[in-house]
Amino acid sequence: MSRDTLSAAFAALADPTRRAILDRLLRGEASVTELAEPFAMTPRAVSKHVAVLEAAGLVTRGRDAQRRPSRIRAEPLADIDAWLRSYRRLWEERFDRLDARLAEQQDEENGSK
């Protein structure tokens, strides 16, 4: 994933409504009307959010007669996960060192009793 594509994906994911739309699309495709149901906003407003997700490559819109269902695209999310992998390793290493230090402290405390 190029930096510009990654930036677009993160920008799209920065909005809680768009993240909620993606969460809904995990259960399967949905029309804008269906996506708008849990929100206190018009289908037109939700459609704009879907357009941002689509521009970032996170969703696609199909055509089924009069219905235009949106579907989640997993590939960009996998690319984000791959980008985050090195940061995840960093935090896991830090937590492992913290666990080791806490175990040492506990051993020291138990040895002095």
Rank of each mutant, 00 (worst) to 15 (best):
F10H: 08
F10A: 05
H49W: 06
D23G: 13
N110S: 14
R97Q: 14
E109A: 09
R71E: 14
N110M: 12
D23V: 08
R19H: 02
S70E: 03
S2H: 13
R27P: 00
L25P: 02
R61M: 01
A65N: 10
T42V: 02
R18M: 08
R89A: 08
R19V: 09
I72F: 10
Y87Q: 11
L22R: 05
A45R: 14
K48Y: 15
W83G: 05
A56K: 07
R19D: 03
Q66A: 13
A14F: 01
A36G: 03
R89F: 12
A14N: 15
S2E: 11
Y87P: 01
D4Q: 12
F10T: 02
P38A: 11
I80Y: 00
V50G: 07
P76T: 07
K48W: 11
L58T: 05
R85Q: 13
Q106T: 12
L102W: 06
V46E: 09
V32P: 01
A11E: 15
R19W: 09
L102R: 06
A78M: 03
W83P: 00
D99V: 09
A51T: 11
P43Q: 07
L26M: 10
A36V: 04
G111R: 15
A78Y: 10
R63K: 14
D15K: 05
D23H: 15
S2F: 08
P16Q: 13
A74C: 01
L77Y: 08
R101S: 11
P16G: 11
D99L: 12
A100V: 02
E37Y: 03
N110T: 06
T33R: 05
D81W: 07
L90Y: 15
A36T: 00
F10Q: 05
R88T: 13
L84E: 15
